[in-house]
Simulated scan of single mutants.
Amino acid sequence: MTLDEIDHRLLDLVQADAARPLHELGDAIGLSPSAVQRRLTRLRAAGVIRAEVAVLDPETLGAGMTSVILVALIDDDEKHHTGFRERMLAEHRVQHCYSIVGHWDYVVVLLTPDLKANRHLSRRLFDKHVKRFETLPAFEVIKSSQAVPVPGVSRGSGR
């Protein structure tokens, strides 16, 4: 699918606020609400827009501790990797899980209420086929975003 400059600007706007009304989106990019709706429908159908979600405040919901965990598995047995990935996918407190290259096999981001809950969950998640893991509790969230850089759209410090 080929995306033009208007698509890029529209994507940048909806990833900042997917609930923004069509007429406001149209005013911002110079299109009618119906033209905006057609573009959004096309972008959803093509899979460019994968989901539209509400971003919740973790602390308000009792998940105020974010931690980054580095994980190394015992060996490169594909069954161990498959099992690990399935555990990560099944656990709702796992926010992100990345397979990486280097001394570690995975980076996992967990949201838990506190250190005690983090330890308990880590023991359960990282007990099978894990050689070692290192937990790095976040002291302060400086930036947390799912926003994807959109070609041709520059986000300044004012956003």
Rank of each mutant, 00 (worst) to 15 (best):
A19G: 12
A19W: 06
R20E: 05
R20T: 07
R20M: 12
L22M: 08
H23L: 00
G26Q: 11
G26A: 09
G26S: 09
D27R: 15
A28L: 04
I29D: 02
S34Q: 15
S34G: 04
S34N: 13
A35R: 11
Q37E: 04
L40I: 05
L40E: 02
L43V: 10
L43I: 04
A45Y: 02
A45S: 12
G47M: 08
I49E: 01
R50H: 06
A51K: 13
E52N: 04
E52A: 11
E52Q: 13
A54W: 09
V55W: 12
L56V: 06
P58N: 07
E59L: 11
G64M: 09
V68L: 12
L70Q: 11
V71H: 05
V71L: 05
A72Y: 07
A72S: 15
L73D: 00
I74P: 00
E78N: 12
G83C: 07
G83N: 14
R85Q: 13
R85S: 09
E86T: 12
R87P: 01
A90G: 07
E91K: 10
R93M: 11
R93F: 06
V94T: 10
H96Q: 14
H96Y: 15
C97W: 07
Y98A: 07
S99D: 13
S99L: 14
I100S: 07
I100F: 12
G102P: 09
H103K: 14
W104T: 06
Y106D: 01
V107N: 01
V108I: 13
L110V: 06
L111Q: 08
L111R: 05
T112E: 02
N118H: 13
N118D: 02
R119G: 07
L121K: 00
S122R: 14
R123S: 05
R123A: 00
R124Q: 03
L125T: 01
F126D: 00
F126L: 11
H129P: 02
R132N: 11
F133Y: 15
T135S: 03
P137H: 03
A138W: 05
F139C: 05
F139Y: 13
V141W: 05
V141C: 01
V141F: 07
I142A: 04
I142F: 07
